[in-house]
Design a binder for these strands. Structure first.
Lengths: 138, 138
DNA sequence: ATGTAATTGAGATTAAGTTGCAGCTGGAGG
DNA sequence: CCTCCAGCTGCAACTTAATCTCAATTACAT
């Protein structure tokens, strides 16, 4: 189960399964599906855990490395803006260099409309972001 | 053109077109399509402008309001994580009642992969959010 | 049991963005 | 063309999310 997966990851990397990491792992498993590090930290704190904020932040990459969680949002932590033009498009964003590729696929748009109809949902706008590696960083 | 659009927006809101706002507008028009506020500020600064960082940040919502730029990224600026499970899905979110419908369309996924290949982009994960009205609120 | 590289918490630091405030200014109304 | 005041400004202090430093502690291979 999860703890074994985590331990295995740590061992292969020459890292240790400390009681702090264990606490963080267990608390994480009890979170709702989406969470942020601060929520996790607060929950530990209110349960009386002595684990520090730094340890929570330091453990997150290890949980990702062991395949137990994934980063959902942005790579790049600050706000970005775009000059408006009338052509709608979606984005591919390179996780490594931050490059943004704009693309537009009519088929994709159409398919989304169909999906909306199936759910009786009236779509107004959407945002599709594909994260990954660009040609150069791939 | 842009300046008129901006002035019109400001006037209808009872706001003023100051020289600082004008400088920011013009510098913004010279940026590459995607930019962040700090880049904009630095560019003004290096050109000898006396405009403050605060004014840049304060002007951005006005540029959005006048339809000249859009926010590209997430509203929520901090990192989020998600416990891994094997069912990937996307979201439809009702603008009115906040209801979230999870859906999954293999065709949509496939089409995305094809689009990535076309751009020589190695997609790792994506997030697709369709905003609109659910059956009840529609 | 021991040695040591990894880990810890506290608090300082950084980055991005926001806010309060005292003085300045665009532009509507005269 | 003036006047006036709501709206603006820069500055610096503040906030939030996250990272780093460092001396003390600890897991775990041998």
């Amino acid at each position: 189960m999860e703890k074994e997966k985590f331990r295995e990851f740590l061992t292969t990397k020459g890292l240790k399964l400390t009681k702090e990491r264990d606490e963080i792992l267990h608390e994480m498993l009890g979170m709702k599906k989406h969470f942020d590090p601060e929520e996790l930290f607060i929950r530990l704190k209110t349960k009386g855990s002595k684990v520090s904020r730094a340890s929570v932040y330091r453990t997150i990459p290890l949980l990702i490395g062991s395949g137990l969680i994934e980063e959902v949002e942005r790579v790049d932590r600050h706000a970005h803006y775009e000059r408006v033009s009338d052509d709608h498009h979606d984005h591919m964003i390179c996780i490594k260099c931050g490059k943004v590729i704009e693309f537009y696929s009519p088929t994709l748009e159409m398919l989304q409309n169909e999906t909306c109809q199936k759910e009786k949902f009236k779509g107004i706008r959407h945002s599709l972001e594909i994260l990954g590696y660009c040609e150069k960083c791939g």
